[in-house]
Design a binder for these strands. Sequence first.
RNA 1: GCCCGGGUGGUGUAGUGGCCCAUCAUACAACCCUGUCACGGUUGUGACGCGGGUUCAAAUCCCGCCUCGGGCGCCA
Length: 434
Amino acid sequence: MQDRTYTADAEPGDHVTVAGWVHEIRDLGGIAFLILRDTSGKIQIKFEKDEMDDELVETGLDASRESVVKVSGAVEEEPRAPTGVEVTPDAVEVIAPADPELPLDPSEKVDADLSTRLDNRTLDLRKDDVQTIFEIRSDVLRAVRDQFREFDCTEINTPKIVATGTEGGTELFPITYFGEEAFMNQSPQLFKQLIAGSNVERVFEIGPIFRAEEHNTPRHLNEATSIDFEGAFCDHTDAMDVAEGIVKASYEAVQENFGDELEVLDLAEDFEVPEGEFPRISYEEAIERINATGELDEQLVWGDDLPTPAEEALGRDVGGHYFITDWPSEIKPFYIKDHDDDPELSTGFDLMHPRMELVSGGQREHRHEKLIEGFEQQGLDPDQFEYYTKMFKYGMPPHAGFGLGGERLIMTILGLDNIREAVLFPRDRQRLSP
RNA sequence: GCCCGGGUGGUGUAGUGGCCCAUCAUACAACCCUGUCACGGUUGUGACGCGGGUUCAAAUCCCGCCUCGGGCGCCA
């Protein structure tokens, strides 16, 4: 439709053809208004019954809500119209009628449950705030890519069908690959390391990860988008700098490109760009601070993983993004390097938002013998990972990286209650369709 | 995987054994209304997740199943 004008571009004095959905019809008697909605916004179409062709009026006013219509007419300035302009139609065509019984209400007079919304995502996305979530998601991913390029990174794509997992076989979705057992990849971890070890050196990937865990929470998905970084000749502090830069660039993009929308929409009321450097708190200090809050029933001791209430208590105490560094080696995976001067301490770090963990990263073990030892210590068979370990025999530089949960980033930026709000078609324990 | 709490018109809800051929909002239909902007008014349409049980009587109590939400563990 080359002759179609977006509703937002209709200027007084123009004769336009607009096309979109019937948002609402308000019939006042002698005069009636049809509100037509497209991706750019809404515009009012005026029907004066006594002064206009009966058939045209009937076609326009008989259209059910959410039908797709095409309207041609003169655009006039009209202070009484919601957008200051309205169209007096000379032609109306219903292109695709909608069943009057809608599975949810896109005009948002009545809320729908999340599961009803996800079952009818097309209609759900016709709401301004829902559409804006995904416009923002798109822009955040653009900003993330731009920022990685600032950091001299090359974007890569690694396989999602793999022969072995990253950390064993328990959380993987098994599939059949030409009669052989294979899995959906839970993380690009091993592949991105193999590329960082080439002279590409610094890489990032934005792609899906698959986890077969049967959790059912507002912050977990079985298919998620991972934002991964890996850099040769980087240590864990460099990786933290990159993670911090990526998160801040995301907030800045939202502020710059969607600041006005956030003001208007019922979305992200508490939005603010994080200021200053993210504090880097050692695991040991984190435990002390959590215990000092007195919010936990039991005191934490060295070696404990941090349970959800502990993370929340520390989040309230810190009041913004922060890193937890220097985790005990035993609770971090085999590919994370220990500190040279203390093998009990790892270079692993997490980047936390007060609500939840966003990033997990660290410096990697690049020494072949140590890597093999690590496999054995975690009860994994190094032979199964030979495609990975053998490349550590041919000059693997020190390197570091992280994985950032893409949906968690969007969720925390916008203050969404449920991570499913940040995915068009989420995959969770119960949902495989649509 | 474990532990809680739910499923009532198209949508969102009220309703803890009879007072309910089930409330309200929205939607839809009809009528009235010439400037609405969540238009307003009147009338009407439309529902107790599935199966079994208890009872004179079940949306309501019990059992099983399906399904949704939340918490925990673990994670991004």
